[in-house]
Amino acid sequence: MKILVAIKQVPDTATQVKIGAGGKAIDTAGITWIVSPYDEFAVEEALRVKEKRGQGEVVAVCLGPDRAKEALRSCLAMGCDRAIHLNDPAWTAADTLTTARALAAVIKQEQPQLVLCGRQAIDDDMGAVTAQLSEVLGWPCAAWIMEESVDADGKNVRAARQVEGGLEVFDLPLPAVISAQKGLNEPRYPTLKGIMGAKKKEIKDVKASDLGLGAEPPQLSVVALEALPPRPPGRVIQGDVATAVKELVRALREEAKAI
């Protein structure tokens, strides 16, 4: 079974994000880039499906600038068989729909039976690509999945997601798109062998024209990024306990409207 995993390279979770000059993008100077953690769950699950079936191929795909190759190499080190790097100036301002269309075009060429994504990227938290991708492909989609199992003959996948108070379980015919929620698995560390072997694996560069896609203006463009206003300082309520509690309750009710 061929499985394709779509990943995004995002700033490390510990990054202190600053708004860049121009106010429409973040300042990327000095940022450490990682594979978005939800996408790592997707990579891990793809590898587990392959290992469980004893055969297959896992292909990692990423749309991004040159530096995104590092993210793909991490996926190869974890065990993906090869990678495809969608890298073209035409995609510099790509919104989620452009990204979904580019991924769909690759998927039409590669024809995997299963596509895995993270439930959202942890940078802009948009969470739209999975849905848009399945829409463009016309494939069934199950999002925020906590458990999955592909049946023995590779025709269907059973997937479960957490809902209020329990699990909701679906059956989807393959090919299908699934997005990974935290809890699906515990991603492995790349082994030394995996890291050493990653440079021997293929990362194919693909441009928009290779997929028959032209430059299209994004449907969604960023107008401005605004920093959160600084948090107002806390307030210490003075006085003896009985008076202070009364004042606290009054403030919570009338000012904060929290109770």
Binding site: E70, R73, P190, I195, K199
Partner: peptide, 12 residues
């Protein structure tokens, strides 16, 4: 790149 990946893995 390879040494950096090993460093990252060991750190994590």
């Amino acid at each position: 790149d390879e040494q950096q990946m090993i460093q990252t893995m060991a750190r994590e």
